[in-house]
């Protein structure tokens, strides 16, 4: 699978993640400690995978959107919508949980289609088109829950964010399923090529017979469903739908994960493996800061340093420059 490496671009976030984990190994107590309890693994690394699942899902969806040259700012709010729909249905009706999740995902799918139509048919710039739902989506979620935090105890729904499957958090299974599905669709069919062509040169793609409007609408729908699954996880994890706060600023985390992962914001070639690595990098950073008890006021600074470093490594120009400087030194 060439996608795994994507011409070396996945390498840099992986190096970043590796260095960070090495740092954690030496400086964070109990970081690599694992423990089996109730037939499942526990440990900081497992927490990172579990808590990082939301951004990983958002990043997978966002990768395809960004590959078409777009961006989806509404994912954080769509998380709130999915969580609110599920929480309201599960507390106020007797519908079985799979149906509840289906309705929640269906609702965000519709909203995703709205994004897609605005971008592909109406021709509104993606950043503006998705900004509409970023603002309005949360309003819808708040209306559904009357602006309150809706709590639930339904075991099946709680399982999504807290349960274990094969000894690992169930959230990981969800991430792998969505990622695997997306990989199959984009790498085993022509769809991936369509997406890259649309992102690279839309006019050329259209003349080649690529159904670019359909492709564009499709990626926004997919991104919305990813956000919906992330929203279900977020709600399930705290056994409550916190419409006003859930997923706040997470759209930016997702975009960051994609960019760090080596997919250019200009569209074209994309790598989902890079985005997932990027998402794990963010989550590991966050957990490291908290574990080391870095003062909340300065947490953004070390985060920024790591982000800048990885982004610089991604830049061909920067690497060439460094190579020249090092080469000159070697000669002298």
């Amino acid at each position: 699978m060439k996608d795994w490496f994507a011409g070396g671009r996945v390498l840099y976030p992986l190096i970043g993640l590796g260095l960070l984990l090495m740092f954690d190994f030496f400086f964070v107590p109990n970081f690599f400690q694992f423990e089996v309890r109730d037939g499942r693994l526990f440990g900081t690394v497992i927490d990172i995978l579990n808590q990082g699942s939301k951004v990983m899902l958002l990043a997978i969806g966002m990768t395809l959107v960004i590959a078409t040259g777009g961006v989806d700012l509404s994912v954080g709010s769509l998380m709130a919508v999915a969580g609110a729909v599920a929480a309201v249905l599960v507390t106020r009706s007797d519908l079985p949980v799979p149906v509840v999740c289906g309705v929640a995902l269906g609702a965000v799918l519709l909203l995703g289609a709205f994004n897609g139509v605005l971008v592909s048919l109406v021709g509104i710039q993606p950043i503006v088109a998705t900004l509409i739902l970023m603002v309005a989506g949360r309003g819808v979620a708040m209306l559904l829950t009357d602006g309150q935090i809706v709590t639930f105890e339904n075991e099946a729904l709680v399982y999504i964010g807290n349960g274990a499957f094969l000894g690992l958090p169930f959230t990981l299974t969800l991430v792998l399923a969505v990622w695997g599905g997306a990989l199959l669709l984009t790498r085993r069919t022509a769809l991936g090529l369509f997406i890259e062509t649309v992102g690279d040169n839309e006019t050329a793609a259209r003349f080649c017979g690529v159904p670019n409007r359909l492709v564009k609408t499709g990626v926004y729908c997919f991104s919305a469903v990813c956000a919906g699954v992330a929203g279900l996880i977020a709600a399930s994890n705290i056994k409550a739908a916190d419409s006003s706060r859930v997923g706040e600023m997470m759209e930016l985390d997702a975009i960051f994960a994609v960019v760090v992962g080596g997919t250019a914001l200009t569209g074209g070639r994309f790598t989902m493996a890079g985005s997932v690595t990027g998402a794990l990098l963010i989550q590991t950073l966050t957990t490291t800061m908290v574990s080391l008890n870095v003062s909340p006021a300065i947490i953004p600074v070390p985060k920024a340093v790591v982000i800048v470093a990885v982004c610089l490594l991604q830049s061909d120009k920067f690497r060439a420059e460094i190579g020249r400087v090092l080469g000159r030194k070697a000669m002298a």
Partner: peptide
């Protein structure tokens, strides 16, 4: 609530 849980979990 979600961040409270995440932070407490790590600590």
């Amino acid at each position: 609530r979600s961040v409270g849980k995440e932070v407490a979990e790590a600590l």
